[in-house]
C-alpha cells in the first residue's frame, strides 16, 4: 500500500468525464465547462443514468447515492469530478 497515494492530476477527471459525454452522448465539446450542470447537458433522465453508469465503469468505481444523486439539482461536472476523486482517494486509504 502506498503511504501517499498519487493525487489525481488537476482537471484530469473532469476531462475524462467530458470525453465520455462527447463520445458516447453526442454532447458538443464546446458547450462543456466544469460549471455545466448535469441538468444542462441536454440529455434526459434515462441518458443521465447511463452517463453516470459509464463514468463509474470508466473509473471502475460505484458511487453510492448518498455521495451523489445525479437527479438532484445544482450538481455540475466539477462536483461530479470531485466526488469521483474523493471516492477514489477514500477507497485507497
Amino acid at each position: 500500500m502506498t503511504e501517499n497515494p498519487p493525487q489525481p492530476e488537476q482537471g484530469s477527471t473532469y476531462k475524462a468525464i467530458a470525453e465520455i459525454l462527447v463520445s458516447k452522448f453526442q454532447v458538443e465539446e464546446n458547450t462543456l465547462t466544469p460549471q455545466t450542470l448535469l441538468t444542462e447537458l441536454g440529455i434526459d433522465s434515462l441518458s443521465l443514468m447511463e452517463f453516470v453508469f459509464a463514468v463509474e465503469d470508466a473509473f471502475n468505481i460505484r458511487i453510492p447515492e448518498e455521495r451523489l444523486d445525479p437527479r438532484e439539482a445544482g450538481i455540475d461536472l466539477q462536483k461530479l469530478a470531485n466526488v469521483i476523486d474523493e471516492f477514489i482517494l477514500s477507497t485507497k486509504k
Binding site: Q26, I43, D44, S47, E50
Partner: peptide, 8 residues
Amino acid sequence: ISSVSKVP
C-alpha cells in the same frame, strides 16, 4: 447509429 432518445 445514434437515436433521438440517446439511450443505447
